[in-house]
């Protein structure tokens, strides 16, 4: 039968789609101009480094979240998972000091533990979702509570602290860098670039989008649906591990309140960036822009005393809703 909706897309769609794509970028530029005009320190090396380095944790996680959401899933557990991985990493490193001493091997061992813990946590989420067939929302809501509680339990209600000497040795991983660029920024940039490539250029990225768009079609097209879905959660888990590796040297401790609400910030960044919450379409660079928008709002409120920083959450909330409204505008042009 004739499907005439097609003709609508042929003509007026392009310019609107561009606006839809450019929206987050324009918002980011506007924020930078606003920040620079409000405070002369805004564009200083110190402030820029500070903003970018602090965005790195959420940013690295949000890149992984982009794949999960694109494939039609969601992961609410990443904040708790980060706290748990940090706790396990600190405990493991403290326990290994007598054998390994304080030095590079200890740091490498700690990093390995963090990556493995993240991978394991992602595997459990992925297994329950794709093999057992429980809804992602339910599984990760459950694991969110479990990891949060396990962390509090490991810390016995208090704080897990890395051995003082080990912490001093590990600190540069957060505070130093090469050519004046801090390590967290370098790692975030690498993760983002690799993520963007994976999303746009690899069969994995294509399969994620196909799975999120219509799982049946993916299945009928010989896509190993379970495996792809599982892989998105494992990838996210590992990136939580990477984020934790960058986070632990900053404070050298973890507690039950580490990483609270990170999951929502990560999801918000993904959505602001133009990835469709229902899945089927994802944009890693958009997510990066989304993360930057969120942290710039925070930064500007702290630097300029026009609006109380306490309203940070409210402004971010408005931005998220606005982003989705814009997304829908883009859709109605289809």
């Amino acid at each position: 039968m004739t499907d005439t909706t097609g003709e609508t897309t042929a003509g007026p769609r392009r310019p609107r789609l561009n606006l839809h794509v450019l929206g987050p970028v324009l918002a980011l530029i506007a924020l930078i101009i606003l920040g620079a005009s409000l405070n002369s320190n805004f564009l200083s090396y110190g402030n820029v480094t500070n903003v970018l380095a602090r965005s790195a944790f959420i940013g690295i996680i949000a890149v992984g979240m982009t794949f999960v959401i694109t494939a039609g899933g969601i992961d609410l557990s990443v904040g708790s998972m980060a706290a748990f991985v940090a706790g396990v990493m600190i405990l493991a490193m403290n326990a290994m000091i007598p054998t390994l001493g304080i030095g590079v091997p200890l740091i490498v061992a700690g990093m390995t533990v963090a990556l493995l813990a993240g991978l394991g946590a992602g595997l459990i989420n992925g297994f329950l979702i794709s093999k057992v067939g429980i809804e992602a929302f339910i599984v990760t809501l459950g694991s969110m509570g479990i990891y949060r509680s396990l962390t509090t339990w490991l810390a016995d209600g208090g704080t897990l602290s890395l051995d003082f000497d080990a912490r001093s040795f590990y600190r540069p991983v957060y505070y130093d860098g090469i050519l004046g660029i801090a390590w967290p920024i370098i790692v975030f940039a690498l993760v983002a670039i690799l993520g963007e490539l994976a999303m746009r250029k690899t069969p994995f990225g294509r399969h994620c989008a196909a799975l999120g768009a219509n799982e049946q079609v993916a299945r009928y097209s010989a896509v190993k649906v379970d495996r792809v879905r599982m892989a998105t959660y494992v990838l996210l888990g590992m990136l939580v591990g990477v984020a934790t590796i960058m986070y632990v040297p900053r404070l050298g401790s973890a507690s039950g309140s580490t990483g609270v609400l990170w999951e929502l910030e990560a999801i918000a960044a993904v959505i602001i960036g133009g990835t469709v919450l229902k899945g089927g379409f994802g944009r890693v660079w958009g997510t990066v822009v989304g993360v930057l928008i969120l942290s710039l709002i925070d930064n500007i409120l702290n630097l300029a005393s026009i609006v109380s920083p306490y309203l940070n959450g409210a402004i971010q909330g408005v931005i998220v809703i606005l982003a989705v409204v814009l997304q829908r505008e883009g859709k109605s042009a289809d």
């Binding site: 039968m1 004739t2 499907d3 909706t5 003709e7 897309t9």
Partner: peptide
């Protein structure tokens, strides 16, 4: 009509 069109807009 256009190589960039979606599959859903084909007849």
């Amino acid at each position: 009509k256009d190589r960039g069109m979606t599959a859903g807009s084909l007849s």
